[in-house]
Design a protein around this nucleic acid. Sequence first.
DNA 1: GCAAAAGTGTTTCTCGTACACCCATGG
DNA 2: CCATGGGTGTACGAGAAACACTTTTGC
Lengths: 236, 236
Amino acid sequence: MKAIENHDTKSNVLFFTAAFSVDITLFTYSENRIKVLLVKKEDEPYFGKLGLPGKLIKPIDDTMSALNAYMKSLIGNDRFHKKQLKAFADVGRHPLGRVITIAYYGLIPEKQVRANSMEELLWTDISKLPSLTYDHNRIVESSLKRFRKDLLRYPNVFEMLDKNFILSEVIDIYEQAFNTDLDSPNFRRQLKDNELIRPVGETRYSVTQMGRPPQVYTFDKKKYKGRKKEPIGLRF
Amino acid sequence: MKAIENHDTKSNVLFFTAAFSVDITLFTYSENRIKVLLVKKEDEPYFGKLGLPGKLIKPIDDTMSALNAYMKSLIGNDRFHKKQLKAFADVGRHPLGRVITIAYYGLIPEKQVRANSMEELLWTDISKLPSLTYDHNRIVESSLKRFRKDLLRYPNVFEMLDKNFILSEVIDIYEQAFNTDLDSPNFRRQLKDNELIRPVGETRYSVTQMGRPPQVYTFDKKKYKGRKKEPIGLRF
DNA sequence: GCAAAAGTGTTTCTCGTACACCCATGG
DNA sequence: CCATGGGTGTACGAGAAACACTTTTGC
């Protein structure tokens, strides 16, 4: 890249002194709770404090590739649903200098996290988030908003559930996300009406070992053909 | 800022060699068309080519403040609706080095652009966009998607219309944005039912000088109390 | 009068919601 | 048998969409 060779020319020295990073709010559904992944920071300014997973990116590296490599090292997997949220660029947000972070949010099924790392990782209930380093509380807030928005418009729940799941898990995620009670009969209908899920054989198991054993479903990703076009109207 | 003093320390020299910029897709409604603002680039790599308004940001500057100052100099106004879209960070997107751009989109009424600059500015019909510098065509694409999405959820049309407007202008914007024909009787009802607009006296004028002269309306920003809560359902 | 755009009224249909009720299991 | 959660059926009501019809201007 030219930048590196040029970074001391008269015009560029003024601008090419910033750094950038990626941070990710990774959601999963574990022990019947929606959780986000936190890490203990091992860099200097905030050593030992809790924050979102993330790291500085070398100016020659692609952000997504760097994020993938990082996640692979952290949870043994980089193949999960992720999307860029937006950039956080407040002047004072990083003690080492001007660091712009590109925030992502992601969804992963608990089972796809490398088993032996699952226990040492700090999966934290979204309703019990502690104070975080940098501006990470703000980032989590934004991620949660986007997470909720997307739950209504994309079949994202299935990206955080195991290949085989039961409907009450789906409902539970929506109830926690929107902090409300849903009418389970109606919600089931909506789920089944859009034909994206399919009962997988007679298999069945239960969560609390009470009541009628639920049907096991699986998500048929191929059947999903983009967003349902929404009516052009004024929803405000 | 520490960064500037520290930027030659062993650990930081690796990271603090990137630059960042802001770019904005600014929409308006002019001559009955939705348009975006383009500029002729005067920096070296793409001198003379068309692109989105935008510039490199000094690492000590706040992005929003820098954007505001820039827009003031460009169109004589920085008080218009704007929102961050997301960051564009492809490795090869800028010929001078690693430059991450934070993309905004904005809405402004034609009348609030400084009059004498209105004519020299390149307001371009969104249906006739030329090839742009850098990755600006991709940025415009993203902006258009977001613009459309937000039209359905926020009273954003009014941010690109004059204080006094007529309903057919509103409908026209929606029709152009979604490239479709709308049922004007029903759309009028929706507009008037949500009580955010109010007819301003007997005043009236017409666009094509044909047919019955329309009522003039004004948007009552105070009456808007945040997003209407949408039902928790599966719209996919 | 006629054309053209503004604006109103009415009917139909869809979909979200409420809720009564049945099913299958463990104890 | 009862408790508990899984699951189906039905009925009502709000709001979107379709469309017939009236109003007000210029020519």
